[in-house]
Nucleic acid binder design. Structure first.
Lengths: 111, 111
DNA sequence: ACAAGCGTAACACAGTCAGTTGCGATACTC
DNA sequence: GAGTATCGCAACTGACTGTGTTACGCTTGT
């Protein structure tokens, strides 16, 4: 069980920033936070069953993202380009998630 | 042969912005710009042999990029995490480029 | 009651990017 | 040679974003 302040000190930032990020992981069910005296943060599940993909998805990063096609755009070339690129990006994102899914928190910790 | 002003009007932006972007494609050898009266922009090669990967690389996007590992960081877990993630991202980026390489400008144009 | 912790809102600050203006250099036309 | 159209580039602005910070309320254990 670690407090926001401890984590913040360790990574060189501010407790509020830590709570902002970890809060999203809590919403996703990856972490549990406890309030009050002796509160703090801990993993919601065993580190062996949390993958980097879980974290990536929880943070909703979508590094590889295609914005919506800006409907009603008159240029057919622009449309065609967007379709193709969007397809490729989606495919790439799935590949990324698949790769991230192969590494667990425990794997990283044991290196 | 199109001028920056024509292209800018078409995509709804400013000629200078167009020149900024297309200038990078020119540096990469994908486009040729001609100065003076009746100048403008044209493809440096046939659209059949320019791929989306060429454009992606020319623009140096690196959508999927891992910053340098911030050398000399004391936390071994952080190090291990960075190594693994960087590897996955690099692999993903290569896959993206490979996919982009399968589509040429001509392909997009003919849709 | 008090202290320690999270949750959240509000604000400041720096960085980034599109947009804009201005000006010089180049090349074509007359 | 004068005029005009174009690119090349630098400088400035404004919007947006992300981090950091402060402040305050709520929860929990001693």
């Amino acid at each position: 069980m670690l407090t926001s302040a401890e984590i913040a000190t360790h990574v060189g930032t501010n407790p509020v920033v830590v709570r902002r990020v970890l809060g999203r992981l809590r919403e996703a069910g990856l972490l549990i936070s406890e309030k009050g005296h002796a509160g703090g943060w801990r993993l919601a599940r065993s580190p062996e069953v949390i993958t980097l993909a879980d974290v990536y998805i929880a943070l909703d990063e979508s590094i590889v993202a295609a914005g919506s096609p800006d409907h009603n755009l008159s240029c057919s070339v622009e449309n065609a380009l967007h379709s193709r690129v969007a397809g490729i990006l989606q495919q790439t994102e799935m590949a990324l998630i698949e790769q991230l899914g192969k590494t667990t928190i425990a794997d990283v910790h044991d290196d």
